[in-house]
């Protein structure tokens, strides 16, 4: 399938989605042959179920799920981006759902794609977006007592602790000092 054909198919799917959910679809954008649909977040799970279950669409494969932070560039601040693919029909579509800063909660899609589980956990870890209905929403890459969400734009690249050490590290040091007293190096 060449690029123009793929674009036309994706555009047709996006238009169909807009017709079906006129209230939800905010924008359809195309760049370099890839089509992305911007959604309100409220009925995102229902729309995903439709995309997954309808046999002529059959988006059975969730390639990727990630967050994007548009701090100071637009409101709502966050977007959760789903890269959908159909292995049987070979078409792809990108869904972007807007998530506001005040209420960073969106429905989980783990019940549709098992593979979304860890992606959503990572998104929660990195952006602080909560996924409602996720079976096991914990931090995944950062330590569980980590403060802040590293991929937010207002999170500093370099630590603002200065000379201070990270809490977890100081605790470890203290513990090892304490253990020395018992002869347990």
């Amino acid at each position: 399938m060449d690029q123009t054909e793929a674009k036309l198919i994706a555009q047709a799917i996006a238009e169909g989605l807009k017709e079906r959910y006129p209230e939800e679809v905010k924008e359809i954008r195309e760049f370099r042959g890839q089509v992305s649909v911007l959604l309100r977040k409220d009925r995102v799970k229902e729309i995903m179920e439709y995309l997954h279950d309808t046999s002529e669409l059959c988006f059975s494969y969730l390639r990727d799920l990630c967050g994007v932070d548009y701090l100071g560039r637009k409101t709502p601040r966050f977007e959760v981006v789903y890269q959908l693919y159909s292995v049987s029909h070979r078409h792809m579509l990108r869904i972007r759902a807007e998530v506001p800063e005040e209420d960073p909660v969106i429905d989980s899609v783990v019940s549709i794609w098992d593979g979304a589980n860890w992606h959503e956990r990572e998104c929660y870890d990195m952006f602080g977006i909560e996924f409602r209905g996720h079976p096991d929403l914990r931090r995944i890459l950062m330590p569980e007592d980590w403060e802040g969400h590293p991929l937010r734009r207002d999170y500093p690249l370099k630590s603002d602790l200065g000379e201070k050490e990270w809490k977890g590290f100081t605790e470890t040091l203290e513990l090892s000092e304490k253990n020395k007293a018992y002869g347990l190096d």
């Binding site: 059975s60 494969y61 969730l62 390639r63 292995v87 794609w113 098992d114 593979g115 979304a116």
Partner: peptide
């Protein structure tokens, strides 16, 4: 097969 696709393998 179906499950593997669903997991995103």
């Amino acid at each position: 097969a179906d499950e593997a696709v669903n997991w995103g393998l």
